[in-house]
Structure formats: C-alpha cells, structure tokens
Simulated scan of single mutants.
Amino acid sequence: MLDLIRHDDILELRLARPPVNALDAGLIRALRDTIEAAPRDGARGIILSGRTGMFSGGLDVPSLLQLDRDGMGQVWRDLFATCAALARSPIPTVAAITGHSPAGGAVLSIFCDYRIMARGEYRIGLNEVQVGLVVPEPIQRGLRRLIGNYRAERLMVAGAMLDSEQALAAGFVDELVDVDHVVPRAQLWLGKLLALPPRAMSETRRIARADLADSFADVASLDVTEFVDGWFGEESQRVLQALVAKLKAKG
C-alpha cells in the first residue's frame, strides 16, 4: 500500500496500491501517519512518489461508495488531516509526480514544498467537478496560493486536466524531467535544500509557509458535514455511480 524507502536522511513514500494508487480509507490514513512520524524517525525530508506512469488516480470511488455516512465522514477528516500533515510538516516535502495525477493525487502535490512532474502526455488537475464533487475550501485555498486566484478558479470550475507542459506553464508544477528521473531529481532538489544552514533554512521555510499551515490550524474541528452531504447527494451519486459503471465496463 505504501513503500518506505530511505535515501540516507530522506524518506521516500512510494504509493503502492495497484493498479492506479487510488486513495482508499486505509492508504489515506497510512499517508497521514507516516508523514507525521517521519521527522520523529529521523527523516530530514520527504519524497512522495508513485509508480512509473501513475502518481495517483485520486480517490478510490468504488470502495468509498460502499461506506455509510459515518465512514465517509471519517475519510474526509483523514484526507484533510493528510493535507494538514503536508502543509504543516516541519521538514520539506517534494511531490515526485511520476505520471498521471488527477483529483486526490493533485491535492497531495499541492501541499508539498515542490513538485517535479514526468514530462510527456501525463495529466494533472483538480477534476472533481467532472465527477460530481465540490472542491473543498482548504484545497481551493492551496491551489490559489500556488497558481493565483483567477487561474485557480478557471481550472477548478471547469474540472480541467492539464498535460505536463501546461501544468508547468500554469505554475501547477515546478519542473519537468523524464519519467525515470523524477525521483532522482527530487532527491537532488531536497539534498541541496538540506545542505543549507539548517536553522536558517527551517525557520525561513516555516515563516514562508505559515499561511498554508494556518489553513489547517485546527483540523480536528473542521466540519465535514457539507462534504458528506455533497457525496451522498443525488447529483454526486448519479455521476459517481456512472463513473464506476464505466470503469467496470473497461475492466
């Protein structure tokens, strides 16, 4: 589900849930727990990666449709807690986007310090509207911080997916490399950052990211009722069920 790979003092968290690294309840919790534990376990930086060609396919809709309201509420709380763990991490994080990254995959990358994406026909974006879901405010805030208010609005309202070159031009990702070099490049970027005077780098980083961290200042108190209501609403259920039927027909 989640492979942990040490590169000296850098910890790589490789999503390992075939076939598309979809985020079910267990993987979301594992990510949150591992990100939070990494600094205590001696890591000085985190790389979040996937398999070649696929970073993460986003939420595991077929499995989540089996949950009741309480179960889905817990998933939303855990997802926000995972975003909070990245946003508030005391050590720098890099999203090594090794392929396609729709919806939940893109969300994870937004809250990292830096995003390196595979060059090519891979796509990234918050396409929630296309599958009948609303993009939650804390996640919208993260994308607005990254690429600017108006551009974020246009992309989210349309549920747009960008290819790698478009994502780079929009500022959604920071650089492109060949797919086989995404993780090594992430190691190199983190290594240069960690070679700086540690106190000065860490404190400057903390101040610079304070607005992002403040978005999740009290994640335990976030009210997920609106998102649960939306998930179980007629429109969302109709679109999500149609999506699952389409996936089953393909498989």
Score class of each variant (00 low, 15 high):
Gly233Met: 04
Lys246Val: 01
Glu12Cys: 03
Asp113Arg: 09
Val177Ile: 08
Leu79Tyr: 13
Asn21Ser: 06
Leu190Ser: 08
Ile5Leu: 12
Pro92Ser: 13
Ala38Phe: 05
Val183Tyr: 07
Met161His: 00
Leu176Glu: 11
Phe55Arg: 08
Asp211Ile: 09
Asp3Ser: 11
Asp113Tyr: 02
Ala84Asp: 11
Gly171Ile: 04
Leu2Ser: 06
Arg151Asp: 14
Thr52Pro: 05
Arg205Pro: 11
Glu235Ser: 11
Asn21His: 12
Leu162Pro: 00
Ala22Leu: 07
Ile47Gly: 01
Arg209Asn: 09
Trp189Lys: 02
Phe111Asp: 12
Asn149Met: 05
Ser109Ala: 15
Asp24Glu: 06
Gly71Glu: 10
Pro136Thr: 08
Val61Cys: 05
Pro198Lys: 12
Leu126Lys: 04
Leu243Asp: 10
His181Val: 00
Asn21Phe: 05
Ser109Ile: 01
Ala167Glu: 03
Asp78Asn: 12
Asp223Ser: 13
Val239Pro: 00
Ala25Trp: 02
Gly125Trp: 00
Arg238Trp: 08
Ile47Cys: 05
Leu243Gly: 00
Leu108Ser: 08
Ile46Leu: 14
Ala38Asn: 06
Thr225Cys: 07
Ala16Phe: 05
Pro138Gly: 11
Val183Glu: 00
Gly58Ile: 04
Trp189Pro: 00
Met117Val: 07
Pro184Asp: 00
Met201Asn: 07
Ala87Ile: 11
Cys83Trp: 11
Met117Gly: 01
Glu137Ala: 14
Gly132Glu: 08
Gln140Asp: 02
Val134Gln: 11
Gly53Ile: 01
Ile46Thr: 02
Ile5Asn: 13
Pro62Gly: 11
Trp231Tyr: 14
Ser215Cys: 13
Thr82Gly: 07
Ala85His: 05
Arg206His: 11
Lys246Met: 07
Arg185Pro: 02
Gly233Ile: 07
Ala37Trp: 07
Gly50Ala: 02
Ser49Lys: 06
Val224Ile: 13
Val177Thr: 14
Asp41Ser: 12
Phe216Gly: 02
Leu240His: 00
Arg32Thr: 10
Leu155Pro: 00
Ser221Val: 14
Leu67Ser: 09
Arg51Lys: 13
Pro198Arg: 10
Arg151Trp: 09
Leu194Phe: 07
Val157Cys: 03
Phe55Val: 04
Asp178His: 12
Val61Lys: 04
Leu86His: 02
